[in-house]
Simulated scan of single mutants.
Amino acid sequence: MSAAALLAGVDEAGRGPLAGPVAVAAVILDPSRPIEGLADSKALSEPRREAVAPLIRGHALAWHLEWVDVAEIDRLNILHATLAGMARAVRALRPGPDLVLVDGNRLPPGLPCPARALVRGDAREPAIMAASILAKTARDALMRELDARYPGYGFARHMGYPTPEHLQALRRLGPCDAHRRSFAPVRAAMATPLLD
């Protein structure tokens, strides 16, 4: 890859939760505009992520955020839906990349250029770190909106992950439209009478 080649990092947030979409981000950083504070989004505090995200959006050569909704997750399964979202995010970048680095051990089909999967890439590659931060901050903001739309589940606290609080709310309230019907705890809640 030449010095002028454009490298895109790709990462997602929200594969493990029982509710809400997956957020996928693709980012091409500008080598002439370095961003201080890049790291794996999971290693940063929420205030730090929220401070770095607008710097990424303002300094990157290109970035795109793609949503993988609950219907697509339930139709394709979580892995294939996430990979499809990654491919869409990369294809939406303008300018397009010359090389894509994807966090994890699987590459999405249909990428427009060469790509490599990079295990723990969100701790090793700045462009993937940037994508990780954009995906995580966008998804957290959306889950806070879903918390207001569907009160009682605690989405703003657990972001849809299967915490004891969330599982108890599922048993008490049943699933809402934001829940992934293909996930076992949600299917179990649908088959069980609601708790009083």
Rank of each mutant, 00 (worst) to 15 (best):
L65K: 01
N77D: 15
H64S: 13
W67L: 15
V119F: 03
G110P: 01
A51D: 08
R91Q: 12
L61P: 00
N77L: 12
L55M: 06
R106A: 09
L65Y: 07
A84D: 13
L61I: 14
D69P: 02
A81H: 08
W67Q: 10
A84M: 09
V102C: 11
L65V: 15
A81G: 11
P54T: 00
P95N: 06
A81F: 07
R116Q: 15
E66I: 08
G110V: 04
I56F: 02
P54I: 00
V70P: 05
A89F: 04
D98Y: 00
A81P: 01
P112K: 11
N77I: 11
L65P: 03
R91C: 13
A84H: 10
R57D: 03
D103N: 05
R88D: 05
V90W: 09
A117F: 09
W63M: 05
L55K: 05
L55E: 08
L83V: 05
W67I: 10
P109D: 15
L61D: 00
G96S: 14
R57F: 03
A53F: 06
D103S: 02
L118T: 12
A84R: 15
I78D: 09
T82I: 07
P109H: 06
G85M: 12
P112M: 12
V68E: 03
A115V: 11
T82M: 09
A117S: 15
E50Y: 00
R106V: 06
R94D: 15
R88H: 06
P114N: 02
A87Y: 05
G58W: 04
V100F: 04
A87K: 04
D74P: 12
P109V: 01
A115G: 13
L107K: 05
E50L: 07
L107Q: 09
R116N: 03
A92E: 11
I78L: 13
E72R: 15
V119I: 15
A51G: 02
L93A: 07
M86A: 11
I78K: 08
G58H: 05
R75F: 00
N77K: 10
A87Q: 09
P109L: 06
V100C: 05
E50I: 04
L76M: 12
I56L: 01
I56S: 00
A60G: 06
R57K: 14
